Simulated assay, not measured.
Amino acid sequence: MAKSNLSDAVLVNNYIAGDENSLALLIDRHQSRIYGYIFSKVSDRDLTEDIFQETFFKVIHTLKSKKYYNEEGKFLSWVLRIASNLIVDKFRNDKKMPLKRDTEEFSIFSNIKDSSLDIEKKLIKNQVDIDLKMIIQKLPHDQREVIMMRYYSDMSFKEIADFTGVSVNTTLGRMRYAITNLRKVIEKNKIYLPS
């Protein structure tokens, strides 16, 4: 069996047993989701890189010391918890750091970029992104969290459930309520969202 087909649990055990390449495979497998999750919280590339590296430093330290790690098939959720804790620590230590910065690159509703957009369309699109972000920030925390993980980090509902410690049904319910609440605010404020 090719190493790339091995489960996270097997790769973790191989790494603990001394196979350094197994960790490289785990990082390659999950780096875009972890990076996207961190960026969705801090909106700064340099800070995202720092926290990403610090996250894997902690992963390596924990796995090498063979302490405090219980696999249960949830490697990605475990790593995201480490990243989340590091982000919270950073916010606590640097109260001046902004929580969000509006960037076109990581907008949850601009996954597909069209380089042929003219200036007027770009301005409209930027305003729509800003409006959506403001609306999303007004959602209850649990609904906002599931929207951010689903769209920014491209996490599956099962991964979100594992990370938040609730059932998949609860996660789906939170997403449903979030979308319903977003629609209500959009209709009430007569916000125009071009397709």
Results as ranks from 00 to 15, higher is better:
residue 1 M to T: 15
residue 3 K to N: 10
residue 6 L to K: 12
residue 7 S to K: 11
residue 7 S to G: 07
residue 13 N to A: 13
residue 14 N to L: 15
residue 23 L to R: 00
residue 27 I to F: 04
residue 27 I to P: 02
residue 33 R to Y: 06
residue 34 I to D: 01
residue 38 I to F: 00
residue 40 S to E: 08
residue 45 R to H: 10
residue 46 D to W: 10
residue 47 L to Q: 05
residue 47 L to E: 05
residue 48 T to L: 02
residue 49 E to M: 05
residue 57 F to C: 09
residue 58 K to M: 03
residue 62 T to D: 04
residue 63 L to I: 05
residue 65 S to K: 11
residue 66 K to L: 08
residue 66 K to G: 04
residue 66 K to S: 08
residue 67 K to Y: 08
residue 70 N to I: 15
residue 72 E to G: 12
residue 72 E to A: 14
residue 80 L to M: 09
residue 83 A to Q: 00
residue 84 S to M: 07
residue 85 N to K: 08
residue 86 L to N: 07
residue 89 D to F: 07
residue 89 D to K: 11
residue 91 F to V: 07
residue 95 K to T: 15
residue 97 M to N: 15
residue 98 P to I: 06
residue 99 L to W: 14
residue 104 E to S: 11
residue 105 E to A: 10
residue 105 E to G: 10
residue 115 S to G: 13
residue 116 S to Q: 11
residue 119 I to R: 14
residue 123 L to H: 11
residue 125 K to F: 11
residue 132 L to P: 04
residue 132 L to M: 12
residue 134 M to P: 05
residue 136 I to Y: 01
residue 138 K to R: 13
residue 139 L to P: 00
residue 140 P to G: 01
residue 148 M to D: 15
residue 149 M to A: 03
residue 149 M to S: 01
residue 156 S to P: 02
residue 158 K to Y: 11
residue 159 E to D: 05
residue 165 G to H: 01
residue 165 G to S: 03
residue 176 R to F: 09
residue 178 A to P: 00
residue 179 I to G: 06
residue 179 I to V: 13
residue 180 T to F: 09
residue 182 L to N: 01
residue 183 R to K: 11
residue 184 K to C: 03
residue 190 K to Y: 02
residue 191 I to F: 01
residue 192 Y to G: 05
residue 194 P to Q: 06
